[in-house]
Computed example of a mutant assay.
Amino acid sequence: MRQINKGAEPGVMTAWKAANRALPNYCYASLSAAHRDEIRTALVAEQRGLCAYTGRRIESSTCHIEHLRPQCHCGPGEDVDYRNLVAGVPAPNTPRLPYGAHKKDSWPPIPDEYLFVSPLSGGCGARFTFNLRGQVAPAQAGDAAASETIERLGLNDPSLVQLRKAVIDATLQIRGRGPASIDVGNARRRLRALEQAEEQAGPLEPFSFVLVQALERQIQRIEKIRDGRRRA
């Protein structure tokens, strides 16, 4: 999971709120398709082109607007609170996925919100660790919220794990050579490029936060082997 830094809500949403706040149908369902398109576009840009929960690549045409606090648990006006909105796979009216927003569904109820590691929470990325097989686990043993979030979002669903493994394998392999054949120099350059991209504007690579961890693991593995040979 990558931390999302929320910006100002789109002007079209601010204008809609000003015009509709006093009306009885002041809720998300009353937003027009055009309003939702504008909001979705803003969310995708804010998230640097990555799904809020999975890290998959998204565009405004391939995602939907997701409520961090599910609509069924929202109080008046909460379902149009911009800070409650993120973008996630898949697009509206498409087959359900076994992970992400579809898996999360109406979880968590308000009393269980402490068990949800939100992509808006500070340091959320550091609470998850990815191995080179694409699987995710809590970074710290006993982190009940991270464990519950992984389960409730289906982050270890085999199809999602395979997507992560594919990008990890492609990143760690030098063309024409075996798996995990990238050397320290190239791994460090690749890692630096990902870190620099994070500091700049524009879309990020799909699963970029997973690749950072994979490259760090590869560098540590090679350096450990080198150290062992020096001591031998």
Rank of each mutant, 00 (worst) to 15 (best):
65 I>K: 06
167 V>H: 06
27 C>Q: 10
129 T>S: 12
158 P>W: 01
127 R>M: 11
112 D>A: 09
151 E>S: 13
123 G>T: 02
5 N>W: 05
178 G>C: 10
201 A>H: 14
36 R>P: 10
212 V>H: 10
82 Y>H: 02
174 I>D: 12
220 Q>T: 14
28 Y>W: 05
209 F>A: 10
19 A>F: 00
2 R>F: 15
90 P>F: 08
3 Q>H: 04
148 E>C: 11
46 E>C: 12
39 I>H: 01
41 T>Q: 07
175 R>Y: 10
61 S>N: 09
112 D>W: 07
27 C>V: 03
132 L>P: 00
16 W>N: 06
155 L>R: 01
139 A>P: 03
155 L>Y: 11
27 C>S: 11
7 G>I: 05
171 T>L: 03
64 H>Q: 15
186 N>H: 14
122 G>S: 05
20 N>W: 03
193 A>I: 12
148 E>V: 09
36 R>L: 15
97 L>P: 09
45 A>S: 07
6 K>D: 01
152 R>V: 06
182 I>K: 13
199 E>P: 09
206 P>E: 00
219 I>V: 14
129 T>G: 05
75 G>A: 08
72 C>Y: 01
148 E>R: 12
89 V>D: 04
61 S>M: 03
62 T>I: 11
64 H>D: 12
203 P>V: 05
55 G>W: 09
60 S>G: 04
66 E>K: 05
188 R>T: 14
116 F>W: 04
116 F>T: 01
165 K>N: 09
139 A>I: 01
203 P>D: 03
178 G>V: 13
133 R>S: 09
164 R>L: 05
3 Q>I: 02
165 K>D: 04
94 T>D: 07
103 K>N: 14
220 Q>L: 13
30 S>F: 01
198 E>D: 14
231 R>V: 14
163 L>R: 11
93 N>V: 03
12 V>C: 08
124 C>N: 06
217 R>V: 10
151 E>N: 13
145 A>V: 04
51 C>L: 08
13 M>C: 01
228 G>I: 07
159 S>N: 04
148 E>K: 09
214 A>I: 05
190 R>L: 15
9 E>S: 08
177 R>Q: 15
216 E>K: 15
144 A>F: 07
93 N>C: 08
202 G>Q: 10
213 Q>E: 14
166 A>N: 06
135 Q>T: 06
232 A>H: 15
127 R>T: 11
34 A>F: 04
55 G>Y: 08
104 K>W: 14
21 R>K: 12
153 L>N: 06
1 M>Q: 06
127 R>I: 02
115 L>W: 09
36 R>M: 03
52 A>S: 12
43 L>Y: 02
129 T>I: 12
185 G>E: 14
219 I>Y: 02
165 K>G: 03
14 T>W: 09
199 E>C: 13
177 R>G: 01
91 A>Y: 07
9 E>V: 03
121 S>D: 13
128 F>K: 04
140 Q>A: 13
75 G>F: 00
82 Y>K: 02
49 G>I: 02
40 R>G: 02
7 G>H: 02
12 V>F: 10
